[in-house]
C-alpha cells in the first residue's frame, strides 16, 4: 500500500503488535564504568572541594560560622556569579566571551552619567549597553563567523575604551535608590543576593526546559549536526552573546551600586577570567555541549571562599595567585582526563 505522503509516526499499539514488548539492554560496560569515575570527578569535584573548604574554614577561620560571613560571601559573589551564568551559556556553545569586563565598565559608567533620568532609566540604559555589546559580539561570531575569542577580545579592548571616554573620571554615586540597591536587604537577604538567586533560577530553567536552551546545548555539542537537523544555529549563537552581555551589564550595575562609584578603568577588570574560572571549575567543558548551572554557582562560591580564606589568613598576593592557578589547572586537568577516557 504505497500511499504517497509523509511517514506517519506509528502508534505504540501497532508497534507492540508487530515486535512484541520492548527489551532493554546496552548497559555501560566495564570500560564505561571506569570512565564514569573520571566523569564523576568532573561532575562532583567542585561540590566536594567546596564542602571540604567550608569544613576547613569552620575549624581554622575566626568568625567563619556566622550569618554575617554568609551574607558577605553571597553579596561579594553575586556579580561574579551573574557574569559566570552568562559565560556558562557562551561556553556551552563552544564559545568564550572576553568582553564581559568591558561591558561591566560600560554599564557602570552609564549609571552616574544618566542618573538624571532616575534610577530605573539609568539602569535600563546600562542594561541596554549590554544588549549593544552582546549584539555586536553575536553579529561577529554568528553572522561574520569570527572566532569567539577574537571577536570578543576586540570588544573587550574597544568597550573599555568607550567606557573611559564616556565615564571620564571616577564618579561617586549618591542616588538613594541605587545606593539602596547595593546596600539594603529584604527579609534579611541583600537585594544583590536576591537578584543573583533569581537570575540563577531563570538561567537554570532556560537551560533545562526552554527550546533555546536545548538548542544551545546541541549546537555546542556538534554544530554541524545541529545545522543538519535544521536548528537556527546563528540565531541561537547571537542570542547567547546578547544574554551574556545583558548579564554582564547587570553585574556592572550591581558593582557600581555596591561601591557607590564607577571607575571605568578599573571596574570589572579581569572579570572575564574569574567568570571563566567559575564555569570551568564548575564542570562545564570548554569544548561546549554541556551547561552546568549548579556547578557554575558552586564554582563561583568556591573561588569566592578561597579568596576570603586567603585574606582571612593574610596570605600574600603571590601565593594567592598560585593557589588559584593550581585550582584552575586541576579543573582543566580533570576535564582533559575525562575527554581522554571518552575517546
Amino acid at each position: 500500500m504505497a500511499d504517497a505522503g509523509p511517514a506517519r509516526v506509528p502508534t505504540l499499539e501497532a508497534i507492540d503488535e508487530k515486535f512484541g514488548p520492548p527489551e532493554q539492554t546496552d548497559q555501560p560496560s566495564g570500560y564505561f564504568r571506569r570512565m564514569v569515575d573520571a566523569d564523576w570527578l568532573r561532575r562532583n569535584g567542585v561540590y566536594a572541594t567546596l564542602a571540604l573548604l567550608i569544613g576547613v574554614n569552620v575549624v581554622i577561620t575566626d568568625n567563619f560560622v556566622s550569618s554575617n560571613t554568609l551574607r558577605l560571601q553571597l553579596v561579594q559573589v553575586a556579580p561574579v556569579l551573574i557574569v559566570a551564568l552568562g559565560m556558562a551559556l557562551v561556553i556551552g556553545t563552544e564559545g568564550i566571551d572576553l568582553s564581559v569586563g568591558a561591558t561591566i565598565a560600560l554599564a557602570a559608567a552609564i549609571i552616574p552619567l544618566y542618573i538624571g533620568y532616575g534610577a530605573p532609566g539609568a539602569i535600563g540604559l546600562a542594561l541596554f549597553a549590554g544588549v549593544v555589546t552582546g549584539s555586536f559580539a553575536g553579529l561577529l561570531v554568528a553572522g561574520v563567523g569570527v572566532q569567539p575569542i577574537v571577536a570578543t577580545l576586540g570588544i573587550m579592548v574597544a568597550g573599555r575604551g568607550v567606557a573611559n571616554l564616556l565615564g571620564g573620571e571616577i564618579k561617586s554615586i549618591r542616588d538613594p535608590a541605587i545606593v539602596s540597591l547595593g546596600t539594603d536587604s529584604v527579609a534579611g537577604v541583600p537585594y544583590v543576593v536576591v537578584i543573583a538567586g533569581a537570575v540563577s533560577l531563570v538561567v537554570w530553567g532556560v537551560v533545562r526546559h526552554s527550546t533555546y536552551g536545548r538548542q544551545l546545548v546541541a549546537i555546542g555539542g556538534n554544530k554541524r549536526a545541529a545545522e543538519l537537523a535544521g536548528l537556527p544555529v546563528k540565531r541561537v549563537l547571537a542570542t547567547t552573546y546578547v544574554v551574556s552581555g545583558v548579564l554582564a551589564a547587570l553585574a556592572g550595575v550591581l558593582l557600581a551600586a555596591r561601591s557607590r562609584a564607577s571607575d571605568p578603568t578599573k571596574i570589572g577588570l579581569l572579570m572575564e577570567l574569574a567568570a571563566i574560572t567559575a564555569v570551568v571549575v564548575g564542570g562545564t567543558p570548554l569544548s561546549g555541549g554541556q551547561v552546568r548551572i549548579v556547578g557554575t554557582i558552586a564554582g563561583a562560591l568556591l573561588i569566592q571562599i578561597i579568596g576570603a580564606t586567603l585574606i582571612a589568613h593574610d596570605i600574600p598576593d603571590s601565593t594567592a595567585q598560585m593557589v588559584q592557578a593550581v585550582i584552575v589547572v586541576a579543573a582543566v586537568y580533570v576535564q582533559l582526563g575525562v575527554r581522554r577516557a571518552n575517546r
Binding site: R214, A218, N222, R224, A225, A226, L228, G289
Partner: peptide
C-alpha cells in the same frame, strides 16, 4: 561528525530535529 551529538542522551538526539 554530522550525526550524533555524543554528549547528549538518546532522547535528546532523537528529538533534535523536532525540538521547535
Amino acid at each position: 561528525a554530522e550525526g550524533i551529538i555524543s554528549d547528549l542522551s538518546v532522547r535528546d538526539n532523537i528529538a533534535l530535529a523536532v525540538l521547535s
